[in-house]
């Protein structure tokens, strides 16, 4: 099965993968509308935690959500990390009520109507690939209960949007088995 694999030697920390992800999963699929119009319906309280708790908190403005996230150590190492669609997914094992499931093609998907926002998956996923989606809560009386939020490998696309958007080809769409042996030869 093919997944998105980040090459840290090439990541330039531009976050365009996040932009592409947001746009791809927006209603309008237009970057300006996705950010400036759709983004405004976000829950103020929860904006404090997503996509970056502290950035957004300081900004006081909610931002739309991305399913991949560029992780950065502030010293030149960065890469965009998203769901690795594990064969034995820890998140699915931890999910309280089976909202996360393995689709027939091997993708790990979330049943957004069922998720109760217990964040067992956030706890279980060692890759930090699942985030909280404050736009939606399924539990009555608990607006706080953001549901989970994760990469779905862009079902409408042949190649995920983030891979297409990456200016340095730091994200590649690759068979899982090939990742182990993948080497970037000349980048350092």
């Amino acid at each position: 099965m093919k997944v998105v694999f980040p090459i840290e030697e090439r990541c330039i920390d531009c976050h365009l993968c996040e932009v592409a992800c947001i746009v791809e999963h927006s209603e309008t699929k237009d970057p300006i509308l996705a950010y400036m119009v759709e983004g405004l319906s976000f829950n103020e309280e929860w904006s404090a935690f997503t996509p970056d708790p502290h950035e957004a908190l300081e900004a006081g403005k909610p931002k739309p959500l991305n399913r991949t996230r560029v992780r950065n150590n502030g010293a030149g190492v960065s890469f965009s990390m998203m769901c690795r669609h594990c064969e034995e997914p820890k998140c699915v094992e931890a999910c309280k009520n089976g909202s996360l499931y393995i689709a027939e093609d091997g993708r790990i998907l979330l049943n957004e109507d069922k998720c109760v926002g217990c964040w067992m998956c956030i706890m279980a996923c060692p890759w930090g690939a699942i985030s909280r989606n404050p736009t939606r809560g399924n539990v009555k009386g608990l607006e706080r209960t953001a549901i989970s939020h994760k990469c779905d490998l862009c079902p409408d696309r042949e190649i995920p949007a983030c891979v297409m958007a990456c200016p340095t080809e730091a994200l590649i769409y690759i068979e899982k088995e090939e990742i182990k042996n993948y080497e970037v030869r000349f980048s350092r």
């Binding site: 708790p53 996230r69 690939a129």
Partner: peptide
């Protein structure tokens, strides 16, 4: 507490 995003790395 509260800052629970991407803490899975600690499990790892």
């Amino acid at each position: 507490l509260r800052a629970v995003d991407r803490v899975g790395i600690f499990r790892y």
